[in-house]
């Protein structure tokens, strides 16, 4: 005949522990901010008189984006001939993106862009223009068949006044 063994061992009540954990998680949810950080790379700043020499282009195009107080001008060549003008508003930046794609399609070997902001332009505006310059474009497929992406103009440099 089996003998029933009444268990007199102390039992841990985990319900209060679970309450503590849930309150802790609630505080974490309220305090944490989920931001992902990336970066924009730039090479050494160029001076006004120096000419940026893209290492991978045969002919020096000297593409430049001049960020003025109220507009962005795209210039080409050493004489900085203005080719097109854009605003900082959403429509202007959309046109700038399309224009960058067009310039890249006409000059596929050109990978550099000089950015010359006015001294009082804030960093937010500079980044919005750089986003247009460094859009991602399709670069074929890799060995596994996955789509490869690359930047329109990988090398950017800021022009300084010194």
């Amino acid at each position: 005949m089996s003998v029933s063994s009444n268990s007199n061992e102390p039992k841990i009540n985990i319900i209060p522990l679970m309450d503590v954990i849930f309150i802790f998680i609630f505080f974490l949810l309220m305090s944490v901010q989920f931001f992902e950080y990336f970066e924009i790379a730039s090479s050494n700043p160029v001076t006004k008189n120096a000419q940026a020499t893209p290492p991978d282009s045969k002919e020096q195009k000297q593409f430049k984006l001049q960020l003025g107080k109220e507009k962005v001008e795209f210039t080409q060549g050493v004489d900085e001939k203005v080719v097109e003008t854009f605003g900082y508003d959403k429509e202007g930046l959309t046109r700038l993106k399309e224009f960058m794609r067009k310039i890249k399609s006409e000059n596929p070997d050109e990978n550099s862009m000089i950015i010359k902001p006015y001294k009082d332009i804030d960093f937010n505006h500079i980044v919005s223009v750089v986003d247009s310059v460094q859009q991602r474009m399709s670069a074929g497929k890799d060995a596994k068949g996955n789509a490869k992406m690359k930047l329109l103009f990988r090398n950017i440099a800021f022009e300084t006044r010194e």
């Binding site: 992902e36 950080y37 990336f38 970066e39 924009i40 790379a41 730039s42 050494n44």
Partner: peptide, 10 residues
């Protein structure tokens, strides 16, 4: 330094 990285938020 000659390689600058500007950190941005996604």
């Amino acid at each position: 330094f000659d390689n600058y990285k500007f950190v941005v938020r996604s």
